[in-house]
Design a protein around this nucleic acid. Sequence first.
DNA 1: GGCCGCGGGCTTGTATACAGAAGGCCTTGT
DNA 2: ACAAGGCCTTCTGTATACAAGCCCGCGGCC
Lengths: 213, 213
Amino acid sequence: MRASDKAYAALRDDIIEWRLLPGTVLAEVEQSERLGVSRTPLREALSRLTAEGLTRTAGGRGVVVTDISLEDIDELFELRETLEGKAAALAAERGDAATFEQLRNELLQAPQLISGADPARHDYYGLVGRLDAAIDAAISNSYLVQAMRSLRVHLVRVRRLAADDAERLTSAAAEHAAIAEAIAAGNPRLAEAATTLHLHRSLSHVKATHIPH
Amino acid sequence: MRASDKAYAALRDDIIEWRLLPGTVLAEVEQSERLGVSRTPLREALSRLTAEGLTRTAGGRGVVVTDISLEDIDELFELRETLEGKAAALAAERGDAATFEQLRNELLQAPQLISGADPARHDYYGLVGRLDAAIDAAISNSYLVQAMRSLRVHLVRVRRLAADDAERLTSAAAEHAAIAEAIAAGNPRLAEAATTLHLHRSLSHVKATHIPH
DNA sequence: GGCCGCGGGCTTGTATACAGAAGGCCTTGT
DNA sequence: ACAAGGCCTTCTGTATACAAGCCCGCGGCC
């Protein structure tokens, strides 16, 4: 693995997991020493982070970790609703029914995973990730996929602000199952509606259980 | 201006204007000598281009200019319709009516600019750019704006493939005026519909007058 | 006492030297 | 003659040294 990739992954995780809090200045020499790489690959990592919006240049004083305000969360979900709604609709038109039927059945049994301990819960997140991947593959639009991918980074960061209690995860699993079912049924409008519903509930949950940093 | 910015702008323009054709390999030493900068800022420029999708890494043999296929154009406009449709709707909800009323009036007089020589036509493109900027400002969603901005780079590149005859530009001006009017009227669904109509006609025009490279 | 200007220190931006890896070509064996 | 293997060239990836810019703080001046 390249040193720049290593530095990028390390910094990205530190920011997403809120180990590097908003406002933290990332001086090049300091971070390069901390991560054990030289300044050149570190600069590339910082460029990528800044392009993604996780950091911003602070005019001659290095780059700083960007903040996420309540308005940012609203804007994020507004775009997410647009993109993922369209993605679900396209998947319903173009996707393979059997694939999503299978995912739906697995999602309906997800509560057993959620109620379990941490390793099982990790399996649940993997299942949701497989649904996302299946949708990405079904829509066959690389530009749309890339737009959603760039959003997911921020969304993971926001998710870490909320309390993922078992109750919410159980509801979310049912909502995901509804999306998969609509896609399997080949109903674009229903798939979009199910996605809208899920995202609104997710947003409400995040805003309700918001943990200040 | 930084050397990396200069190299980025030069390469980006060369690619968008089709002076660097798809498949061209951009070796670091070669390009750094051509543009009069060192390898370090040039690498940063190439990273940015690759992140935008204008180039892609060719596994150990530098980066190559990406191609744009017919399917790419379809995918591009599919995403564009989603994003700009939502943007127009949001602008209708949140925008200032007087601003868009003014833009509509100017767009209705645009045929006079289009029929003229090149400097006037440049004014027309500036006018359309002001409409885009007004929509960007009205929606007040930085994530959506950024997603559209990253798309526009590719769209300019595609536009260079089509013949911008006066007839099409006149029609486009009328379509833009319809969008501005719907936004000024505060009608989100109408604004979205007008945008959908405009984009479909643009896509048809591009595909009809497509110039192979 | 407040404001403007200048200098020191630290930061980023750039250039270049070095190392590692990958592809191509030549050679050699079958 | 063809294929496989190794060497060599050339590229990218990394490290470091150098230059330029910016902010902060101090001092003088109004």
